[in-house]
Design a binder for these strands. Sequence first.
DNA 1: TTAACATATAAACGTCTATATATATAATTA
DNA 2: TAATTATATATATAGACGTTTATATGTTAA
Lengths: 105, 105
Amino acid sequence: MNKRADNLNTHSIAFLAKCLADENRLRILLCVSKEKKSVSRIVEELGLSQPLISHHLKELKRALLVKVERSGPFVYHEMTDQRILIILAGLDELGAALLSDRITF
Amino acid sequence: MNKRADNLNTHSIAFLAKCLADENRLRILLCVSKEKKSVSRIVEELGLSQPLISHHLKELKRALLVKVERSGPFVYHEMTDQRILIILAGLDELGAALLSDRITF
DNA sequence: TTAACATATAAACGTCTATATATATAATTA
DNA sequence: TAATTATATATATAGACGTTTATATGTTAA
């Protein structure tokens, strides 16, 4: 642990960040963060088109951020690792902090 | 703290993630994470063109990830918040974990 | 002011990406 | 088998993004 700045894998970080850099993809990811859900359920809950959800799920899967499980005609997706949530919460907090600190410039 | 998944600001998160989603930008950010550096020094250390560095610094500044300070003809840039490093380390670790867990599928 | 240096900006280009529309595959049920 | 539901894929398009080249702005020193 305790890696130094010059020892980080920028390639890997950029790859993950890219996958987290779309708002719809984030909403989908958060949507399946607590329990696995079928594609159609995600479509319902988020109000996005089915092909769009399917496309983004493919990206999330490619980045290993969600795992897939088929059951009959349904395909269930679920967030692979809860540490993702910690990172997202960290980004959320950072964003707020940067904005509030900005006022004191 | 301890925000729940449905209480996160996806807009803000996506905005920050987008800024972290480019490898050159990450290298620049890490380059100025320990001390403030002039543009020309960053150019030297990273071996990228000056307009390219300048462009990415502008993006980093827009996202409030770096702060700027002018001294004579030099413009110094420095990472605004050390928490950024924690997040990057988290992404780095997550990337490695996702890859190693993948083998056990 | 002129020269030299540091940095920023602008335009142009190719590439990537998000999205929509349309269609196809796959599984279930009647 | 046909019909229905669930999901994936294919194609097209518009916009965003990273990079390069060329040029401009700004600062210092002679």
